[in-house]
Amino acid sequence: MATMSRTRLIAWRVVQAVPVLIGIVIVSFLLTRALPGDPAAYFAGPAANAESIQQIRVSMGLDRPLPLQFISYVQDLFRGDLGTAISTGQPVIHELTTRLPASLELTGFALLFSMIIALPLGILAATRPNTWVDHLCRAVVTAGVSLPTFFTGLALIYVFYYLLGWAPSPMGRLDFLYLSPPKVTGFYVIDALIDRDLETAWGALSQLLLPAITLGLFTLAPIARMTRAAMLQTLESEFIRTARAAGLPRRKVLFTYALRNAILPVITTLGMVFSFALGANVLVEQVFSWPGIGSYAVEALVVSDYASVQGFVLTMALLFVALNLLIDVIYTLVDPRLNTQE
């Protein structure tokens, strides 16, 4: 019975995402139209006169009234056509599908890295308040939020590439010595592993390591802080006292009783950090010449590339919605109390 209502609850959450998506399509369309600058003028180039600009405007459909433009935009969307990027002449959908996995791979590894460090650090700090672990946690958190990513990135490159020579040159996802692995997921490390090409996998991983750590150091702070706070609060709960009074071992009290209750706010933070990092890793991408979606969006914005910007906003919004949906689902799986809510 419980699983039945759980499935229904999840299905309901999915349905709720539909109006959000419609809203996103409308807003992303209107926002890009509100951008300053004239794409026709940019496309026509500096030598163009008013007449040729007008000609281009007509050919791009920008002379038509907004509602009509919107309708053809939605029609194109349904065909999977996001338009053509002005600057590169490539279809936007193609650009996005090659660049998005690069960003996702970077952000995903960064988050994995920060979780591996932040969760144990937060738990240890909460169980031993005011000891050296707690102070270490505080120092790491403070350093993590106060060091800008471009600085950490450059510092890491200086030490590990320039001084020590351990890391490969910070030039994109794969050294030119390697061929990119056949595309399955778009994540080079995973694709290379699927292809059983360990050498390429290692090459991709070593390229990934420094930017992922750079971003990870930044995302580590909120996760560690939230883990510590949530654990501290849970450990003071009365049911922890009951568990201790019942003679349950420390490990069981800590993980089965405390952590499972404390993990809910941590999951929320993870979701927020992930979506935030995905949009905000432009600086890291620039420093490491990472061909991600962030740098693509910035370039498109500069030249008022409607199609690209719309494509970017739509993709990010879809990701956000998917991510929130995922978090909601995890929530309902972890917390039985949510099942009864209407």
Partner: peptide, 26 residues
């Protein structure tokens, strides 16, 4: 030794029973 004593030899019940139970465990 205490872990073995607690719950097995001496145990305790508390005020506010709902808060004394783990809210997300059957």
């Amino acid at each position: 030794t205490m872990s073995e004593l607690r719950g097995r030899e001496m145990s305790m019940i508390f005020q506010n029973p709902r808060a004394a139970l783990n809210p997300i465990r059957a």
